[in-house]
Amino acid sequence: MTDPADARAKRLRRESSGFLIGSALFGVGAVPAHATAAGPLGSALTFFVGSLFFTLGGFIQFALSGRRPPRGRWRSADAADWWSALIQFMGTVLFNVSTVTVLVAAVPATPGTFSGWRPDVWGSAAFLVSSILAMVAANRRHELWDPLARTWHGTILNMLGSIAFAFSAVGAFVVPATGAVLSEFWANGGTFVGAICFFVAALLARRFIPQDAPAR
């Protein structure tokens, strides 16, 4: 019979691995040199595959939080943790939609006619809301039925990453008068910085996963 603690530890490692790989691919994809070297299709594929790993990590985190809202007080730490996981998972799905849309458009494109993937404003907004709720849960982690669900180093890094993604979404806004993005620097730089924050958070989470994690 599988030990519940061991099974949960394995799922936590898969969760962190999903965020590790996803954030690494987003970080690489945000580097202009990669877009030039990989071409339209390769660049779009990098972000699409990265979004799939983000969704894998988000789904596992949501599943570990319980697939139904916690009973009792809606303002409890467990409720904040559950809603944070759900909204983050929804954000990753939105990134799936935006990256696959760009991937399809990249198939017939040429380097001179393709601008590449741009940060998704709705997915970025979902990440930011999720991070705010995660801060609430971390601030009251002693109330969580699983105190290991939220750590301060991971929560702060994810918040910084979400803020960076928000800046990237603003920078990627297309100015109607010119048809150009508001800031190429922030569009790429925000994505890169956010990806680094998520990567480090996932790396620390994987490092500190206890072998005797309490079963949910």
Rank of each mutant, 00 (worst) to 15 (best):
A9H: 03
K10D: 15
L12R: 12
G18Y: 06
F19Q: 09
I21H: 09
S23D: 03
A24F: 12
G27V: 06
A35W: 00
A35F: 08
A35Y: 02
T36Y: 01
A37G: 03
L41T: 13
T46P: 01
F48V: 08
F54I: 01
I60A: 00
S65C: 07
R73E: 15
R75S: 15
S76R: 09
D78A: 13
A79Q: 09
A80S: 14
L86W: 08
I87D: 05
M90A: 15
N96C: 10
V97C: 00
T99I: 05
V100N: 02
L103W: 05
P108W: 11
P108K: 04
P108C: 10
S115W: 00
G116H: 02
W117D: 07
D120I: 04
W122D: 00
S124W: 03
A125M: 12
F127I: 07
S130T: 04
S130M: 01
S131Y: 07
I132W: 06
A138I: 00
R140T: 03
E143W: 02
L144I: 04
A149P: 01
G154N: 06
T155W: 08
N158W: 02
S162G: 10
F165P: 03
S168H: 03
V175R: 07
V175S: 04
V175H: 00
A180W: 01
V181A: 11
A187P: 02
G189N: 11
F192I: 11
V193P: 01
G194M: 04
A202W: 01
L203H: 10
L204D: 11
L204Y: 05
L204E: 01
I209P: 01
D212V: 08
A215F: 07
